[in-house]
């Protein structure tokens, strides 16, 4: 378990932030990255709540979808990159 974790830390895959311009890291590998994601969600939630109260619930839903689209594209690309394809596997590993 510990060796596997160390292997994960020493992964040749660059951190998501290095590749996609924001430095949040992988929240399932490091607690500090998960905490950063929490802060981002809190900030996003405050803006969504403000839109919902000041304009309308529908506007809040639309704003949420816009934020999700902004976040999901780099996250999805990062996920696909990190999972890799079978062609990336070296024989014997």
């Amino acid at each position: 378990m510990a060796e596997q974790q160390n292997d994960a830390d020493e992964s040749p895959v660059p951190a998501r932030g290095e590749r996609f311009g924001f430095d949040l890291g992988n929240p399932i590998r490091r607690e500090s990255a998960a905490f950063s994601w929490l802060i981002v969600v809190i900030i996003a939630a405050v803006t969504i709540g403000a839109v919902g109260k000041l304009i309308s619930p529908l506007a809040a839903v639309i704003w949420t979808l816009i934020l999700l689209a902004i976040v999901c594209v780099p996250v999805f690309k990062g996920l696909i990159y990190e999972l890799g394809s079978p062609d990336d596997d070296e024989p014997g590993e």
Binding site: P27, A34, W37, V41, G49, G52, K53, P57, A60, V61
Partner: peptide
Amino acid sequence: SIYWHFVDIMWIIVFLAVYII
């Protein structure tokens, strides 16, 4: 801790959806 942050994030979404908007 990672699980706890996940639970926290989920509550923020629940709170927003049910109580705020």
